[in-house]
Design a protein around this nucleic acid. Structure first.
Lengths: 207, 207
DNA sequence: ACCCTTCTTGACAACCCAGTACAGAACCGC
DNA sequence: GCGGTTCTGTACTGGGTTGTCAAGAAGGGT
């Protein structure tokens, strides 16, 4: 028995995320968010409790969204695990998409992991941002490690290798491609990096 | 026949760099720089032409300093090339030091590559920052590639591997460790990542 | 049709920030 | 010692920022 809100919450958070990714946290003003989302200042403060609230909720949504990619791409039977890892790596080095349906390559500007970017900019003085970014890394790392174990069970990766170490290394490559690929490098170069990393994975010494 | 300046230019730029690394570009005000360097606003504008000028000159100094590390650590005869690469990797994943004599591990906050951090924050709207960061990557990448070639000549790395591809991959790992290691991971974890990356380098198949 | 609750909009005040201008201080050369 | 030139510190201004507030709009329930 009251006026319903006239905006879609997720849509607003997506627009804000795009803005934050493009301009950074301190580089975007509330007016920028207002313009990007179409919401007035009052609505922003009522619904999200200001700039910082928008960021936190946008990052929360990002986190929820981020886990789905690796989980869906990497989960499955042991047989195809290595190939799934290959496909995931090739995609992951090209950035994290804003939405599941829009490819990240379209605008290199906002391709880098949202959580990583925010953590680098303001994480030093914001433990909550820090923690959220850490969670984002964990979800990817865990999924990759699980896929590595599957590949090991299938005999595609050296069983003596530590799957957690490999997962950390691959996560590092993926996050590193965010910054290496951010400017001055073509998508082909990123693909090449992913292929190199994949090719170097330790194969079992057959017989 | 005039009053000499009472501050050491490099010292000021180092202090400013530390501040920028800690708070980001948009997160530090001119007053912050003034407090960190001990210089008044007037001197800052006269000597460095404002906030942006300080950043550019600090990045310039950083670039000049950055190249020395890999060049000195990686250059040398072919025999020890692989071991030099090993040592360099182990050091590089722990960040880029503010000064050559101070270890980067002391404050994880400012350990990440200065150029990369600035490029991620404001590179999208600042081509010059973008280019400077790109140069920083190139100098590391070139030195690594040269060292890989040396190791190949010495028979320590598979001669069929593309040294440029490997250098790109290692650069990506190094930059990735900036963001992965920024928060929530111990130095031991970074060391472990470096060791994993080194262990995976393609060795020549000896007969 | 009416009322009440919630949302929305625009304006407002306090604050911070970058850059400038001006006055004083320090140093070198003579 | 003295003049001139440069450096240093501070006060000022115009613009932009954040967070709040009050008035209007819009819809649901009765």
């Amino acid at each position: 028995m009251a006026r319903p809100r006239s905006f879609d919450r997720d849509h607003v958070l997506h627009a804000a995320e795009r803005q934050f990714r493009a301009s950074g946290y301190n580089g975007t003003s509330v007016d920028d968010i207002s313009a990007a989302t179409g919401l007035g200042r009052g609505s922003l403060y009522a619904a999200f409790d200001g700039k910082r609230g928008v960021l936190m909720q946008a990052m929360g949504g990002y986190f929820a969204r981020l886990g789905e990619g690796p989980r869906k791409m990497l989960a499955g039977p042991d047989e195809g695990a290595l190939e799934r890892l290959h496909a995931y790596l090739l995609r992951a080095v090209h950035g994290v998409p804003l939405a599941p349906d829009v490819p990240p390559a379209s605008d290199r500007t906002g391709a880098a992991c949202f959580a990583a970017k925010m953590a680098l900019e303001i994480g030093a003085s914001d433990p909550e941002v820090q923690r959220l970014a850490s969670d984002c890394f964990s979800v990817v790392r865990t999924a990759v490690a699980e896929c590595v174990r599957a590949a090991q069970r299938n005999g595609d990766i050296d069983p003596d290798a530590d799957p957690d170490d490999l997962a950390y290394l691959l996560l590092t490559v993926i996050r590193g491609s965010d910054v290496v690929g951010a400017y001055g490098h073509s998508p082909d170069r990123l693909t090449s990096i992913a292929e190199s990393a994949f090719a170097l994975l330790p194969r079992p010494r057959h017989h």
